[in-house]
Write a protein that binds this DNA or RNA. Structure first.
Lengths: 340, 340
DNA sequence: AGGTTTTTGAGGTGCGCACCTCAAAATGGT
DNA sequence: ACCATTTTGAGGTGCGCACCTCAAAAACCT
């Protein structure tokens, strides 16, 4: 059998009470005794039985996901994964709730954050653009003992690395390299389409994309970004006129996470077969577009992994436990129709 | 608080003993009573507390990984991940052991499998080519109550889907599509290099690769496979002569999971800058090669995910629990230097 | 009705640990 | 050597469940 706390006490030559004090960081133990116990831990290879710990602690984890109100298919994916995880993790005492917030009203979000009770929730995953108000609200939340992580949209990098998602600059650079390699030996313009260039994520993707194309693919040039604002009519209009104005468009990079509207507009243009088109995020729509050849590649992050990683990180924080960093690195994935 | 078994008994109007009988599938309960309990479960949303279950059951999970003796960097990665997981999962009562076996001696492996005791291990993950002897040995293992899964190298598909790894045909097809897209507008030959075409994995990759190139990239033609047998001198020789013989080689697809030897040979050839080179598996070596531009893309499966997925599946089997299928699908990843 | 079999209930024990109290022992200061 | 303080030990309780035994109740049979 595996050594228990009792075995550890024996090996260290102390009582169970002292072992308990050391293991749980309670005060009133001599430095020398702590060392003695820690050495015994190593010597007999003692590892706490997590099941017993969780049971004795009566621990429950209530986590809240705050997601934007706007959003189409990608957000649906995320919501579906949260639902799955809520069922799958229930036996581990994890309970999830998802709320939608209007990301255009930072006041509303900040107010909601202020009202969150540390009785009701142990941790919050926030997907929202960074604003000073929200940053403050987050600080106050953390002061109250709730754990906060930024989810998919990065809050400022100084925030203690509590971020679940991909490096958007690298994602953009990946798109750039892919576009360049797909268009090798060709000259031409690249069209960039995003919902809004206000968002930091889109800005970073653009920076990464440009950096690679400029450095390694001098025959291609990148056009100014088109902003769709999520409006189908406007999108169709600006895309058609851009393709008309620049006759030598060779590729299109759809930067934002909701690819449906721009891609539908693109598919209406006569030259769409010619174009190399890249988009972000795996959704039912982009899957179909890949299959049909309307899309050449999709750059994505795994929605299930995002949700589970957020949960694991929040839980580890609650328990003040370290975690396996490599498992929490969200990968920038490239999908072709063959590896869907 | 969350409902406990006691609450469930009350809600169902039965005793704790009966609840226990139903939850654990013990005999001697009327069909009607079972229904009553199950309905109460739904009604009050009862979910077993896994910690309490595991504690009460005194459950431990001893798993064995059987890996080939030959193998270079990719296998090292896998071993490192097993080591990490052995530490990380220790608090969940999971204990791992890894043994190397000579994959060229199916007798030895079969003998080892026969000797495995169900006392010592609860489950085994086997990375080995499929042979009739091994298949039999696996069947006997399963009859003895050990759970077996095929790890990375597929055993026959009929084996109840107990396989952790990627679909090699799809991986080859992905490579084919990537190669085709990277070489668009070019004519030329593609060199295929593998350690041995005996292995089913390599065969399937080749099939997938050919299918895509033939169907969608008629300007490219795929040369017969070169087999390295893991021998550096031989590899250098056959690669150099192939490149010499076929002057219009445009791309190279290194199929086997150990890319170092063929890639080192390729980097010696004068024309290597010109070539589009794809390889499999992320290792220290392929990472460096991507960074330097020696390699254009790597198709890989996440080694940490492979190991953790194997553990989760084996554990779920031991507990006769279902698992989140989406989490266990190993993805075929494409790495460029930007998304390493 | 009787007896037999099936189904149910009551209750106990222990898994490994957290958390608590109270007393005993060791230590430090003067 | 005395007292104050710090450190340690002994022991108890409960977390939610699995697993066990024995007896009581219900259902079935002829």
């Amino acid at each position: 059998m595996r050594p228990t706390a009792k075995d550890l006490a024996e090996a260290a030559g102390v009582s169970l009470a002292t072992v308990d004090r050391v293991l749980n960081g309670r005060p009133g133990v001599k430095e020398k005794t702590v060392t003695k116990v820690n050495e015994a831990i190593k010597k007999i290879g003692f590892v706490r039985n997590l099941s017993a710990v969780n049971l004795a602690r009566r621990r429950r984890y209530n986590f809240l996901f705050l997601l934007p109100k706007s959003g189409d298919l990608f957000l649906e994916e995320i919501l579906a994964r949260i639902g799955e995880a809520n069922v799958g993790f229930a036996s581990e005492m994890v309970h999830l709730e998802a709320r939608r917030i209007d990301e255009n009203e930072p006041h509303g979000l900040a107010a909601l954050l202020s009202e969150l009770s540390e009785k009701e929730f142990d941790g919050v995953a926030i997907m929202a653009p960074e604003t000073p108000q929200i940053r403050d609200a987050i600080s106050r939340l953390e002061a109250r003992g709730l754990f906060v992580i930024a989810f998919i949209s990065d809050q400022s990098r100084e925030m203690d690395k509590a971020f679940v998602g991909i490096d958007n600059r690298a994602a953009g650079a990946t798109a750039g390299r892919l576009m360049g390699n797909f268009l090798r030996l060709r000259k031409g313009n690249i069209l960039i389409v995003g919902d809004s260039m206000q968002s930091r994520g889109n800005l970073e993707r653009r920076l990464g994309f440009d950096a690679v194309v400029i450095a390694d693919f001098p025959d291609l040039s990148v056009l100014p970004s088109l902003e769709t604002y999520g409006d189908p009519a406007r999108t169709a209009q600006i895309i058609h006129s851009a393709i008309h104005d620049f006759s030598d468009v060779a590729g299109v990079y759809i930067m934002s996470s909701e690819a449906r509207i721009p891609l539908e507009a693109l598919m209406q243009t006569p030259r769409s077969d010619d174009l190399t088109i890249l988009a972000h995020e795996r959704t039912k729509f982009t899957e179909t577009a890949l299959q049909s050849g309307a899309l050449d590649a999709v750059i994505t992050q795994d929605s299930g992994h995002l949700v589970r990683s957020a949960i694991r990180i929040l839980r580890a924080r609650c328990d003040r436990r370290p975690l396996l960093a490599s498992q929490e690195r969200i990968r920038i994935e490239i999908l072709l129709k063959e590896n869907l």
